[in-house]
Design a protein around this nucleic acid. Sequence first.
DNA 1: AAAATACGTTAGTCGTCACTAACGCATTAA
DNA 2: TTAATGCGTTAGTGACGACTAACGTATTTT
Lengths: 106, 106
Amino acid sequence: MPDLLEVATEPNRRALLRLLAEGEKTVTELSGHFPVSRSAVSQHLLLLSEVGLVTARKDGRNRYYRLDGAGMVRLREQFEAFWTTELDLLVADAGRLGPQSSQGNI
Amino acid sequence: MPDLLEVATEPNRRALLRLLAEGEKTVTELSGHFPVSRSAVSQHLLLLSEVGLVTARKDGRNRYYRLDGAGMVRLREQFEAFWTTELDLLVADAGRLGPQSSQGNI
DNA sequence: AAAATACGTTAGTCGTCACTAACGCATTAA
DNA sequence: TTAATGCGTTAGTGACGACTAACGTATTTT
C-alpha cells in the first residue's frame, strides 16, 4: 500500500486537496485548474481515494469527489508524528539565529 | 529542481531527517539503521543536501551529515502553506463528528 | 613501503509513476 | 430510436527514482 504522506505531497495532488477543501467537485471541474488532462487528474483522484483522503459520489454521468475528513485527520497526525520535538527545537533555533548556522553545536 | 515537500516525505528520507535531528552522523552510521545499502543512503543524503535540508562536513575519510536549520524552516513553512484554514476546519469537524461523515454539507 | 580495509560516491538496472491516447458508458439531441 | 456529445476510467508509453554493483580514494596495518 502506498504511503499516505507521499501520496498527499505530490504537487498536483496537493493542489487537488486544496481545491476540494472548497467543497465537492467533478473531475472535469478540477481538471480545469490544471495543465494536465482529465485522465491524469482522474488517476490522481483514484490514488487519493485509495489511501482514504477523498471519497466519490456518483450523480448522473458525473462523479463528485470530496475530501474525507477522517483521512485528512490521519494525514495531519502522520505529519505531526514525523515532526518531532527535536525538529521543533532545531527550527526554533534556526529562526532565532538567522539563516546561517544550523545546529546547536558549531 | 525537485520539490521540497516531496523530497522530504519519502519514507527513508523522513527517517534520515529524524535520525539527524539527534545530531550529525556519518553515512555508515546512518545506514546501520536501514535495510538498504550505504549507497542508497548516500544518494538520499545527496538529494536532501540538494534541496538544502542537510549539509555535510568532511573529516578524515568520514562525511558528517547534519540538518540544515534554514531548510527545515522552509519545510515547515511549505507544509503550513498547504494546510489552509479550510483544512483545519474540516479536520476539526471530522474529529468532533467521528469517522463517518466527512464534510459539512450532507 | 605495500597490502588490506573502510568510507563514500558514480555507473547501470529495474521498477514505478505521471502522463497522453484510446475506450466504455451515460446522457442529451435529432 | 439512433446519433452525437460529454464524462470518467483503462490501456500503453516515456521518464524518473530507488536500489545494487562496481569504483575511486583515503586510511590503517604489516
